[in-house]
Computed example of a mutant assay.
Amino acid sequence: MLFATIDGLISFFGGFALAAPLTEGKSTGTHLTYAVLCVLGLSFVHHVLGAMLFRTTVGKFLFMTRVVRADDAGRPRFWQAVRRWLLGLTWLPMQPIWGLLGDGGDPYEDGCGLRYVRSRDLRR
Rank of each mutant, 00 (worst) to 15 (best):
G111N: 06
T56A: 01
R115H: 09
G104R: 10
L40K: 09
V82N: 00
S27R: 07
G8T: 09
G25P: 12
I6P: 04
F78P: 01
L114S: 02
G29L: 12
H31K: 08
S119P: 06
F61K: 12
T57R: 04
G50C: 10
L89P: 08
M1S: 14
C112A: 11
R118F: 12
M1N: 14
V117L: 07
I97Y: 05
V39Q: 09
R77S: 00
T57H: 06
G59E: 01
W98H: 08
W98Y: 06
R66D: 10
L100P: 03
L122Q: 08
T90R: 04
L122G: 06
R69D: 01
G88Q: 06
L22E: 12
H46T: 11
T28M: 12
T90Q: 07
C38E: 01
R120D: 14
T57P: 05
L101H: 07
I97H: 05
R118K: 15
G102I: 10
L122F: 08
S27I: 08
G88V: 05
Y116T: 15
G41A: 05
V45A: 14
S11E: 11
G41T: 04
S11C: 14
S119Q: 13
V48D: 02
P93V: 13
F63G: 15
D71A: 00
L89Q: 12
H47E: 14
P107G: 05
L49T: 08
